[in-house]
Design a binder for these strands. Structure first.
Length: 422
RNA sequence: GGAGGGAUGGCAGAGCGGUAAUGCAACGGAUUGCUAAUCCGUCAACGUGUAACAGCGUUGCGGGGGUUCGAGUCCCCCUCCCUCCGCCA
């Protein structure tokens, strides 16, 4: 959500940001409407001022037992103008707020400008893709052959884009989550949260998932939304709060299922468990001082990279271009894990700095040590990591000639010392 | 599901038709050998104004309507929270 005054002061920057998002300029239109709303507000306030003054006189006159009929008649004449002014105020500022709530965040100045993932920039690469003396398989081939990954069973109960994991594979999925949580909480100062999985509309609005992306969400019959990501609930932990500056940064992590209707993604990645209606994810959220959010994003990205490194999954870090970034982000790094079965890198984490964009929508502020008033915090979120996709990456990168796969050393303590699945 | 109670500034908490008490915290200043204490002010948003302050004004008592010259206060609708009962992992 934008600050109207910022747009007033920086109309060119505002339009440039929209252009980077592939949108037409809007500053002129918005500012014209803003000016109209303000003119009306000023006029309304003058009328209110007069009404208040007259009402005070009426009160004074009546308490002295004097006749106030002429004053009452005078103030009565203001009523029509007053109501009209209030009506216009509601209309104009409501419409303006609606327009602003559907505009994506401004990319940071050095974010590459482009329409889609083609213009993303690789900033790092870690690990060498493994070399196999056989044709590497995709995860679902491995999983199905082992009898531990069952798409048919899932479709019987829930239809397409679900999976049933059995036995050791189910355990490894659980172990991966525990492994990730331990690192974030024990080494990186994140506080583990076990949050609600159903949230209300205002929560989804706060992170920017509503009003524009309702079709991506599952909604219950009594108007709850299922979490599409724990970001939604972790970030909203500071909704309507005024934090002390000394409390910052706050860091939260949670392991939750994520539910996505992915209405627009029909036909993409239909095989396997890469893109499903439900998956587990360990999420990180930081609530940061505005001056520190850039650093915090690097730190968070490093937390996610650490997981990949410990698991020995080769990956590359991409700085997303303006057109590929999410609605609320001003800067995003995607981590793409190497998938030998697909012979390419696939997104396994996404870490974003949203600046004050979400904080404005949620009313999340802090009180600076010096000076008065409050400022909006910055919010960041990142996957650390998507558990389902991490499982896929482990299976494919550690696959063995006989059809099974090895278990990364770092993970073995979490699966009772198992070293391989055959 | 049933019955009650509630929502007021960063927090606590009055106010029951006539300018939003008071306390705590915070910030600025005064005072002070230092700390503490004390005193004064500030302490929400918006509009207007300013180079920036100041100043002036409006709104703000969960949200939206209404009554009234005037609404935190009266009426109607909605949302959320709490307590008790019932059911339940």
């Amino acid at each position: 959500m934008y600050d109207l005054r910022w747009i007033r002061d920086n109309p060119e920057a505002f339009d440039a940001g929209l252009a980077a998002r592939g949108m037409a300029p809007l500053a002129k239109d918005i500012l014209a409407r803003d000016e109209k709303a303000r003119a009306n507000r000023t006029q309304l306030q003058e009328i209110q001022n007069r009404r208040n003054a007259l009402s005070k006189q009426i009160g004074a006159a009546k308490s002295k037992g004097e006749d106030a009929e002429s004053l009452i008649a005078e103030v009565g004449q203001l009523k029509g103008a007053l109501q009209a002014g209030e009506e216009v105020e509601r209309e104009l500022s409501g419409a303006l707020r609606e327009t602003l709530s559907e505009l994506p965040n401004q990319p940071e100045p050095d974010v590459p400008v482009g329409q889609d993932e083609e213009t993303n920039v690789e900033v790092r690469r870690h690990g060498e893709p493994p070399v196999f003396d056989f044709e590497p398989k995709q995860h679902f081939e491995i999983g199905e052959a082992l009898g531990l990954m069952d798409f048919e069973a899932a479709s019987k109960v829930s239809g397409a884009r679900f999976v049933v994991l059995r036995g050791a594979l189910a355990r490894i999925e659980r172990a991966l989550a525990a492994f990730m949580l331990d690192i974030h909480t024990l080494e990186f100062d994140y506080t583990e949260i076990s949050p609600p999985l159903l949230v209300r509309e205002h929560t989804a609005f706060g992170t920017g998932n509503l009003p524009k992306f309702e079709e991506d969400l599952f909604k219950t019959t009594d108007d709850f939304y299922l979490l599409p990501t724990a970001e939604m609930v972790l970030t909203n932990l500071v909704r309507d709060e005024v934090l002390a500056e000394a409390e910052l940064p706050l860091r939260f992590t949670a392991h939750t299922p994520c539910f996505r209707s992915e209405a627009g993604a029909a036909g993409r990645d239909t095989r396997g468990m890469l893109r499903q209606h439900q998956f587990y994810k360990v999420e990180m959220v930081s609530i940061s001082h505005p001056d520190q959010s850039g650093e915090e994003l690097d730190r968070m990205t490093n937390c996610a990279e650490t997981i990949l490194q410990r698991l020995g999954i080769p990956y590359r870090a991409m700085l997303l271009s303006s057109g590929d970034m999410g609605f609320s982000a001003k800067r995003t790094y995607d981590l793409e894990g190497w998938m030998p079965g697909q012979d390419c890198y696939r997104e396994i984490s996404s870490c974003s700095n949203c600046g004050d964009f979400q904080a404005r929508r949620m009313g999340a502020r802090f009180k600076p040590n010096q000076g008065k008033g409050t400022n909006f915090v910055h919010t960041l979120n990142g996957s650390g990591l998507a558990v389902g996709r991490t499982l896929i990456a482990v299976m494919e990168n550690y696959q063995l000639a006989g059809g099974g796969f090895a278990i990364p050393e770092a993970l073995q303590p979490y699966v009772g010392g198992m070293t391989r699945i055959a």
